[in-house]
Write a protein that binds this DNA or RNA. Structure first.
Lengths: 338, 338
DNA sequence: TTGTAGGCGTTATCAC
DNA sequence: GTGATAACGCCTACAA
């Protein structure tokens, strides 16, 4: 900018005024400055600008796994939404790992991001202290954090799972297995509650033997399904509360020579692009990814702009059951009901 | 930091020395500073630090679509690799849109990123001028750019496609359709060349009627397959040069009541997590995503550190044909060859 | 071992 | 309309 000023034979203040349109600059000076900018190849330094202005026009985004199709889509929506607003987003994957998250948020805060969108992982306590120590606005997505009064956009997980499991009971299933990960997370507790609610609704007893809790990974789903399907009285349906695990479940069925949906019905949480392309076409609970991403972005942008009411806002969206081909009445069911 | 210095009753320079471990600080001062840091909740300001040091410890990453499973995985690997190196990465999706890319790179450069990894989109000319105008190091992934001497890590697309199509001819297919997007991109030209090479190798004539060029989208793949499969002499196999389009292809087959692989064999470029979970299990060309991401990161990091030789390095990796269930000999083939 | 001072590139506040 | 000049928060000689 100093160079530009020299070449254009004006003061650096005038160049700044021109670049930001903050004051009227004479046509003559304008022309000289424009020329000078081109000749020196000037580009304004956002770092210096941020230091002075106290805003970076950058936000942080942390998610557990970007390869989880739900997060892939949410990240996609969020990055594009912020892009449109002229913001850059720094992305981090916590890999469901607590220490990663702490360090990444520290890094982000140190870089003076204007705000953060966080799909939290791990215990509430540590996260709470981090949030408490900063003035940067947070928006929680997917997972809440008890005791943290931040804006949030989440799903009504309980209802969503209840609907899906209710669909299975409606089909006639009486032994419905439940496969999930990470018990310490709000999302998972709600989903488990939805499972139990649907069972109760159908007058079915909750059987702990049909519940398998793993660690979000495909192999956990595989192991879970292997155990479940070799039970003496094996379940006729399985609901996976997350997407990576259902992959393992399907592979287990394949290795066991079990056909879906003929031998066992399967449904899972989180839709994915290939869900209706191959066989069986998967019945899933679809989250409104577009809305989640856009609302979270809007919430954070308002917070940054300071136009938001001071009390935290909590948006709870509804999932949608995508009924496809992976669920059928249990074999022998027609006979029973006849 | 000024506050910390005041509370600890030392100079700001001493605090800086302590924070960076750049000089010996007396135990007494250390203790007072540590206490002061806690009481004022000090966190170092990376923006000011960057301004002074001229390095942001931040890199930019732009890809066409993060929802394309290939890019999802590459982005995942790259973000984690930079994370380990203490770097933040700013992510942008160009959405295959030229003006987006220009603007995003401008934004990134303005933010003084230490370097960029770019999966380029669009014409070479504009990209070339952008690259030429900056001193920030670039690393190209997936797609090269003629006339740009930047580091790059790409795939041997020609060989990879030739192998896949060769597999189809080996199965006995004589009419193999080719579905692809974006002709202006190095990747796509190489893949098309691989297709023709395999045909030639098998002594098959190139038939323009079997080639459908769309725009990377699922619906383009759908339209292409609809046209191809209603041809009087329809192909017995189709190879999709990208992943989104093959989804459309499969949906078209389904809507046409055509079975894969019985009626028509399908293979495509880019592997995806669900490829071997459902039926048909998709035969794909798998790119070494892990290696691509890690090599690109290493290249950029070396460039940033200044430890790299000045001439640009070009890494060309090999794809791997993942043979699964979506390809079979054409119906009637056994009879013909007998 | 510790302190003082200058400057990184901007923007904002004044005078002129 | 334009130009000095003082911050923004940090780092780094250099001096003490």
């Amino acid at each position: 900018m100093l160079d530009v000023a020299r070449v254009a034979q004006v003061s650096i203040a005038t160049v700044s005024a021109f670049v930001n349109g903050s004051a009227n600059v004479s046509p003559a000076a304008t022309q000289r400055i424009e020329g000078a900018i081109r000749t020196v190849g000037y580009q304004r330094n956002a770092v210096a600008r941020s230091l002075k202005l106290g805003r970076t026009h950058t936000v942080g985004l942390t998610v557990p796994h970007i390869t989880n199709p739900f997060f892939t889509e949410v990240v996609s929506v969020i990055t594009q939404a912020f892009d449109r607003a002229g913001y850059a987003v720094m992305l981090f994957c916590t890999d469901e790992h607590l220490s990663n998250q702490d360090e990444q948020i520290r890094l982000l805060l140190e870089r003076m991001v204007d705000g953060l969108i966080v799909a939290r992982v791990g215990e509430d306590e540590r996260f709470r202290s981090i949030v408490g120590a900063t003035k940067a606005p947070f928006v929680l997505i997917d997972r809440l954090c008890e005791g943290v009064d931040a804006d949030a956009v989440v799903l009504d997980n309980r209802t969503a799972v209840a609907e899906a499991v209710g669909y299975l009971t409606g089909l006639g299933h009486r032994r419905i297995a439940y496969v999930a990960g990470g018990t310490g997370i709000s999302t998972m507790q709600e989903r488990a509650a939805g499972y139990r609610a649907a069972l109760e609704e159908a007058g079915l007893a909750f059987d702990p033997a049909l519940v398998r809790l793993g660690d979000f990974h495909e192999m956990d789903g595989y192991a879970a399904a292997m155990q479940l399907m070799t039970l003496p009285d094996r379940p006729t349906a399985v609901f996976s509360a997350n997407n990576p695990m259902v992959v393992g479940v399907m592979k287990a069925l394949r290795d066991l020579g079990l056909n879906c949906p003929k031998d066992v019905s399967v449904a899972c949480f989180d839709d994915f692009p290939f869900a209706d392309v191959f066989h069986p076409q998967m019945t899933t609970v679809r989250q409104p990814v577009q809305a989640i991403g856009e609302q979270a972005t809007a919430l954070l942008l308002e917070r940054i702009a300071g136009t938001a009411a001071s009390e935290p806002r909590r948006l709870t969206l509804r999932g949608r059951l995508m009924i496809r081909g992976s669920c059928a009445p249990p074999s022998g069911w027609a006979a029973q009901s006849a």
